[in-house]
Design a protein around this nucleic acid. Structure first.
Length: 512
RNA sequence: GCUCCGAUAGUGUAGUCCGGUCAAUCAUCCAGCCCUUUCGAGGCUGAGACCCGGGUUCGAAUCCCGGUCGGAGCACCA
């Protein structure tokens, strides 16, 4: 055996055990183990703020947290971080749930931070009693300036009795009149530790609790408590929170609460696609994009409309991992992952862009029945055939009299006239199927199509105002049976998702 | 400005903790070939990288120091 050449050995081995080489190929990328994780005892959280539509960055974050909980047989908590009544909107609670379901993620328990106001107040009272918090009624600029310089605010001199009274009085005060601050370390290198605000007054109804509360905890306080009391064992989040770990651990320390393990990773972006609301909102207002589900965006909704399947988000998460550098990936990676996922189940149809009339001689009217997929058993479709067909303008423009081409799966033709309407004659001469050029075609009575083709919104940081194109054409009649949300392949064009039925049927181009 | 984090092919990523087996992994992209009645999928081949400068060491992608570049934070947002 060892005397044989390597390739012969491989062939031998492959014939003995075909799975031998597949195994070594199938090694998929997976996420690293979680530190301090005990089987069955991992609890993670999905912590969206109900103030907008989640984008792919949230999607990865959701995926990581969900993945580890499942991987260790633990629990997932969907927790709405809704302690800023001015920002939260009722509609987003459900929008987020629905996007999570689309992603294929589930959770054992759902919880609103805003349901625990009593708990926050109790812990706040404890901090005040311990002398760990004080009420400050300086104006915001002054607080900010002193924190910047690392100088103590005179309010921090107040004694416990004063603070107890003033904390109680805060519930009757107006917005901006007073805040409760942590007695941290005003000179700390970590600016988050410089006596940060714990509670502020917000005079605005909350989507769930209405006008019931006016004194609201800030994120760091509510989160510090909830990550402990909810039993969260592991927090996976992006690195913009890096400086808050020390603060949140400190708060928990003063309250005698347990801290979870925190892992951080960088925010990630897709080249040419803005993720933040700050960037997207003006584009919507100016009418550059049509809304948060514009297919050029990377909100989960937009990705969905564009024909990106949820599994792609998970694969992407595994590919990028808990990266601490700042990944800016190409669309091509997303497309490649998505293509491999949808290719085995996407039905194939003929689509003709910018139809040009083709008059055929020598063809008996009838029909052809073709498989819906080249390899998978997805059934068949039937195309009626008459002497008038349509081919795409792109293909027609390349034709000249005397050319011989094949109408795919139908017949070979010799071109008689080209330019305007194409005329051609069917030829019965033998041709090599592999070398003849094949083009797609559509019969009369096909389905009118309007295809939206998105391209990157930014190229080299330049906004591309006309980055969305619309092409029209006709698909073969069988395509009329497709439903909204179906993803199919228009042969030699690419994969598209059916966005809306009607006349015409609207589809969105995903990728080749 | 200050603080923290990061830097491996065009892009993403493994390796860095515990220095040698790394003439550096995998994927994507690009090029060529094979297969295929799609320009898809699949198969094969090729091209392509350790930010820079010092130091430690027999030996550095890996450890140390100093730069450079990129990111984040410095809210009564989360």
């Amino acid at each position: 055996m060892n005397g044989l050449s390597e390739s012969v050995q491989r062939d031998e081995l492959a014939s003995l055990d075909p799975s031998f080489f597949e195994v070594e190929k199938k090694e998929k990328r997976s996420l690293p183990p979680l530190p301090d994780a005990k089987e069955g005892a991992v609890v993670t959280r999905l912590p969206p703020e109900p103030n907008g539509y989640p984008h792919i960055g949230h999607g990865l974050s959701f995926f990581f947290n969900h993945y580890y909980a499942r991987h260790y047989g633990g629990k997932v908590i969907l927790r709405f971080d809704d302690t800023n009544p001015r920002a939260e909107k009722a509609e987003f609670y459900e929008a987020i749930r629905s996007d999570l379901r689309w992603l294929g993620l589930d959770w054992e328990r759902e919880h609103n931070m805003s349901d625990d106001m009593k708990v926050y107040y109790q812990h706040a009272a404890k901090l005040v009693e311990q002398g760990d918090a004080y009420v400050c009624d300086c104006d915001q600029e002054r607080v900010s300036a002193l924190r910047y310089k690392g100088e103590a605010c005179p309010c921090s001199q107040r004694n416990i009795d004063e603070n107890t009274l003033m904390w109680a009085a805060m519930f009757d005060r107006g917005e901006g009149e007073a805040v409760l601050r942590l007695r941290g370390d005003i000179a700390s290198q970590n600016t988050a530790m410089r006596d940060p605000t714990l509670f502020r007054v917000i005079d605005h109804p909350h989507p769930i609790h209405g006008d019931r509360y006016s004194v609201w905890p800030v994120y760091d306080f509510a989160c510090a408590i909830e990550d402990s009391t909810l039993g969260i064992t592991h927090v996976l989040r992006s690195n913009e929170f890096a400086l808050r770990i020390e603060l949140q651990d400190f708060i928990r320390g003063r309250l005698g609460l347990r801290s979870p393990v925190t892992l951080q990773y960088s925010r990630f972006t897709i080249r040419g696609s803005p993720t933040s609301k700050r960037l997207i909102r003006p584009l919507i207002e100016e009418g550059v994009v049509s809304g948060y589900d514009d297919p050029r965006l990377v909100t989960l909704r937009a990705l969905h409309r564009r024909g990106i399947v949820p599994e792609t988000v998970g694969e992407l998460a595994k590919e990028i991992g808990l990266s601490t550098s700042e990944p800016e990936i190409d669309w091509s990676l997303v497309e490649s992952i998505n293509r491999k996922l949808i290719d085995p189940e996407a039905k194939r149809y003929f689509f003709v862009e910018d139809p040009v009339r083709l008059e055929l001689e020598g063809l008996a009217p009838g029909e052809v029945t073709l498989p819906l997929h080249p390899t998978a058993d997805l059934g068949t479709r039937t195309i009626p055939v008459g002497t008038t067909l349509f081919i795409s303008k792109g293909d027609a423009d390349a034709l000249a009299p005397a050319d011989r081409i094949r109408l795919k799966d139908l017949c070979n033709i010799d071109i008689l006239e080209a330019g305007g309407t194409v005329t051609a004659r069917v030829t019965e001469e033998k041709v090599d199927l592999r070398s003849i050029q094949k083009i797609q075609w559509a019969p009369e009575g096909g389905v009118a199509i309007e295809m939206t083709v998105p391209s990157p919104l930014y190229v080299d940081k330049e906004l591309q105002r006309d980055s969305i194109a619309c092409v029209t054409g006709i698909a073969e009649p069988a395509f009329g049976a497709c439903e909204v949300d179906d993803i199919v392949q228009f042969e030699r064009v690419g994969f598209v998702r059916v966005d809306a039925k009607g006349e015409p049927v609207r589809v969105i181009f995903a990728h080749r």
